[in-house]
Design a protein around this nucleic acid. Structure first.
Lengths: 338, 338
DNA sequence: CTACTTCATGTAAGCGCTTGCATATCCCGG
DNA sequence: CCGGGATATGCAAGCGCTTACATGAAGTAG
């Protein structure tokens, strides 16, 4: 109505100031809850802001304050059960705390390196959550020197806080469970363990598997170890390979539930039954594991996101930062597949 | 080293200008590829920028230019197969085109309304993709009056471009397929169809189901219709209900693959077999449908995200905007469940 | 050789906020 | 009745860019 709404739609802090008959400084202070504002003034400002449907312009306040209230989150891929759980957990706490979440898919180590350089140089976020993206020395120091606070999830980084699970223990747990069920010939479907800087999770689980077997006095048979690619298909292919063995395993540890699903399908396709002919245990606590009757080691994935986000917010709001590694407990959920 | 790197880490446009011995205006023009810059100058500037590892400060250039190169994407939930596929598709094209992706989970109509008001008032993005979030009249006009360009996915909005599938046709297709397989008593597992402003997809699929049955001269039996909640568990529960019927269906149309998975589990739990006792068809083209042997109507979900993002970018780069509804074809994939 | 174009570059005014500092007001004890 | 410390508010200088406009340097035609 009045002359204030000239600039198509958006009300600025000046409009509010005019409406409340105060200076823009007072509006800024009032709206952000800073001290030394008279109650009556603050009310007047709040009313004016409300009636104008005013929101501070994000870019302007970011530029002026140097804080963006944006959190970047980088994941290897988006369309995967695991990462969308993490994302969901992180989003819930971040939006609750008034942060925006900006996501990027960072598939390869090259992309990762570029992502980090760009992110740091552009300086567009207050914080960064790296999910299952191991950092090399250079990347870590580039990040450490930036204004951004960093929390990693899924992998430890040494220089930043992280939320992790004990993947070695997961491997042990799985073997222990199968051993208790009477299995002695235990196979494993793992992920690609080639590049330690690409993805360390599979390696650790394999280590735990081998460790526990050894401590049970069982020799680790390389023939029983198959490398899939963390996918349903990968699990299926690998399982088919194992089934073709003369002396095939009586139980199989799939290092992810999705691989386990593939494995179950492979077993059934061979007219064999789970768990009678082959017992299968997975890792994740995937939505579908219950309905599939899959025994799994639940790693409470959504909590990874929740914890990482929570910790990052704490750090940003001033909590002491210590390169501590928050460990999420895993729980064995026994179902009909073992 | 030199006096330029005073401001902890970040190089500003002034540093670049100084290094290249030109004005900041020239740096800006050079780096953004604007015309009227001598080749030699542009090279000098580019070199300086590279060696300083300079990136324009996002907030500053956003404030000055009025463009953010941020796209908001709102989905009902993040941890769902469907939405993470959409997200993955959108992210791929947006990052390719140099946009950042900011995500929000918007669960209820109330949150949706708040989300829209905030987004418009804050004016923090150039564009917005609303996935499976129907807009009421007021919301649509609030959005229409904003600076943001909007594309919807999953639902048509009338006022904005959208990418959709023909959900009625999906219902028909499913019934047609089951009919051709000889089934006459066909049940349906649908989602909650109560609130048309909450989610319209289930309703349309039910309509197609009913339509096709009718046109085959089969009366629609309300007893064969069960409302789940788009989840595996929902599908399982609903299926159990149907199985308890005296005259149970010989085939069931689950309006999502995840519900179909639940249904398959329910059937097996009753010592019955799929497809012998009950045939099941789903919708989605879920990653696991192949391994589960589920017949499904693939709706190429990732493409929804790709198309929505692509169209939004086109609009932002100046393409004519027409409230057209880009329709993604669906394809029946027959497997062992029918 | 001059007048008029073009093209290249610089100048400076914002963009809408935040925030350090200055100013004004009020209340209290002496 | 006055000085001084709180408390409340305003002033104005940025934050790091973009961009309209002014200026300068060449080139071109008459």
């Amino acid at each position: 109505m009045s002359a204030s709404s000239d600039r198509r739609g958006r009300a600025t802090i000046e409009d509010v100031a005019a409406a409340a008959a105060v200076s823009v400084a007072t509006v800024s202070r009032s709206l952000r809850g800073l001290p030394n504002v008279a109650k009556s003034t603050r009310d007047r400002v709040t009313d004016a802001a409300t009636s104008l449907n005013y929101r501070p312009h994000p870019s302007a306040s970011r530029l002026a304050s140097g804080q963006t209230r944006i959190i970047e989150i980088a994941v290897p891929v988006l369309n995967s059960w695991y990462f969308s759980e993490v994302l969901a957990g992180a989003e819930a706490v971040l939006s609750e705390c008034g942060y925006s979440l900006s996501i990027s898919a960072v598939a390869s180590p090259e992309e990762r390196e570029k992502f980090i350089r760009d992110a740091v140089a552009a300086d567009g976020a207050d914080g960064l959550i790296m999910v299952d993206l191991p950092l090399d020395e250079l990347e870590a120091s580039v990040l450490a020197e930036s204004r951004m606070r960093v929390v990693t999830a899924g992998v430890e980084s040494g220089r930043f806080e992280s939320v992790v699970v004990d993947n070695v223990e997961i491997g042990r747990k799985a073997v222990r469970h199968l051993f208790e069920r009477g299995h002695r010939r235990i196979g494993i479907l793992s992920g690609q363990s080639d590049d330690p800087l690409h993805f360390t999770v599979p390696g650790d689980r394999v280590v735990g598997y081998a460790e526990q077997l050894t401590s049970f006095g069982i020799e680790v048979d390389p023939a029983l170890s198959c490398v899939g690619n963390f996918s349903v298909d990968g699990g299926k292919e690998s399982m088919l390979t194992l089934l073709r063995l003369e002396d095939r395993p009586t139980a199989v540890f799939a290092i992810s539930d999705e691989m386990a699903f593939g494995a179950m399908a492979a077993v059934r396709e061979n007219q064999l039954s789970v768990p009678h002919d082959v017992a299968i245990i997975g890792v994740d606590g995937h939505d579908l594991s219950e309905v599939m009757g899959l025994t799994t080691i639940d790693q409470h994935v959504e909590d990874h996101g929740v914890m990482a986000a929570r910790r990052l917010v704490e750090i940003l709001e001033g909590a002491a930062e210590s390169p501590l590694h928050l460990e999420i407990e895993t729980t064995l959920v026994v179902r009909s597949s073992t």
